[in-house]
């Protein structure tokens, strides 16, 4: 480790120039496709209910963990296709690939499903960083291949066994749930292998990892969700969006119950998002892409600190 003074930026100016260039290309891409750039509040009265996303508070308000809810309200109000590049904030997330304050590119496409949106993400990445055509693989196939278990049916015990066979041993005094195991094995065992030569989309998630994606009935039912991986790093998460207000309300309630069981801060569901969904949000697909991580992989850098002017510990 160098002992250079911490008032200095941790990124090189080359990395900062690369960031500026990528941002300009992103804006050009959307401009040429008639997608409107919008801004929504960074400070909001409500926040997400996701059990594992922790919001930072500013007075009685919340720093937004993503612009998702506000952008969905714009869609419901008839905005048409929109994108946004903004700062988002998540407490307690700090590491080589996490910074509590980060830059998100988020966009929504009315009339698209998750496959249409993957097509567009692929085009964007090719245009912005000059990558090869992306590959597409189902969550089930990639999980079977690397972990040797079926992600739709395996229970926590079976996943724990499969994890041990892959060299993952977990110390937890409380239960590690099936969903926790799926997420952990994805991050620890599978992710490092994904997108080595070309960006890779993983799609059709187990229904219990739906988050805000629509669930397609079937045997098994699957969540119309995808993630994009490039050079061993998760870059984006997208959904064929849930637009059903009643189901959204149920998922909020479930999240809040989980938060309560885990002893996390209580949060209220966002009433304005629910009103917008009740009014009717057009069927859409949406995706959030981590811009800092995109710059990181484009620069072949190893940590976010290599591409952020001042990461958390120098902020």
């Amino acid at each position: 480790m160098s002992s250079e003074p911490d008032w200095r930026p941790s990124a090189t100016f080359d990395a900062l120039r690369l960031r500026a260039k990528l941002l300009a290309r992103i804006r050009r891409f959307f401009d040429s496709r008639g997608v409107l750039e919008v801004e929504t509040p960074i400070l909001g009265h409500a926040t997400v209910t996701d059990p594992y996303i922790h919001s930072l508070r500013a007075g009685s308000l919340f720093l937004q963990t993503s612009p998702e809810y506000a952008m969905k309200r714009l869609l419901a109000a008839g905005s048409g296709p929109i994108f946004q590049i903004c700062k988002a904030f998540r407490a307690e997330e700090s590491g080589s690939r996490h910074n509590p304050e980060f830059t998100l590119l988020e966009w929504y496409r009315p009339g698209f499903d998750h496959h249409d949106l993957m097509d567009e993400v692929d085009l964007l990445i090719k245009e912005v960083v000059g990558s090869e055509d992306a590959e597409r693989v189902t969550y089930e196939a990639v999980f079977q291949h690397h972990v040797g278990a079926n992600p739709h049916w395996a229970d926590a015990e079976e996943l724990e066994r499969a994890g041990r066979a892959c060299g993952v041993s977990v110390q937890a005094s409380s239960d590690v749930s099936r969903q926790d195991w799926l997420n952990l094995l994805m991050a620890q065992v599978i992710e490092p292998h994904l997108g080595e030569s070309a960006p890779t989309f993983v799609y059709d998630y187990p229904a219990d990892l739906a988050a805000l994606a629509r669930i397609r009935p079937g045997d098994p039912p699957v969540a119309e969700r995808f993630e994009l991986y490039f050079r061993g790093t998760e870059l984006a998460n997208g959904y064929h969006e849930l637009t059903d207000a009643r189901e959204q309300r149920e998922r909020f309630t479930r999240d809040i119950e989980i938060r309560r069981e885990l002893g996390y801060d209580e949060v209220e569901p966002d009433p304005r998002l629910l009103s917008a969904l009740e009014e009717g949000m057009p069927a859409s697909a949406g995706v959030a892409l981590g811009v800092d991580r995109l710059v990181m992989v484009a620069a072949f850098a190893r940590t976010l600190g290599d591409v952020l002017s001042f990461p958390h510990d120098r902020a």
Partner: peptide
Amino acid sequence: VEFVKPGKGQAFTR
């Protein structure tokens, strides 16, 4: 020490 956190999931430390 590596912080491991899938976007929507539980955080772990490897």
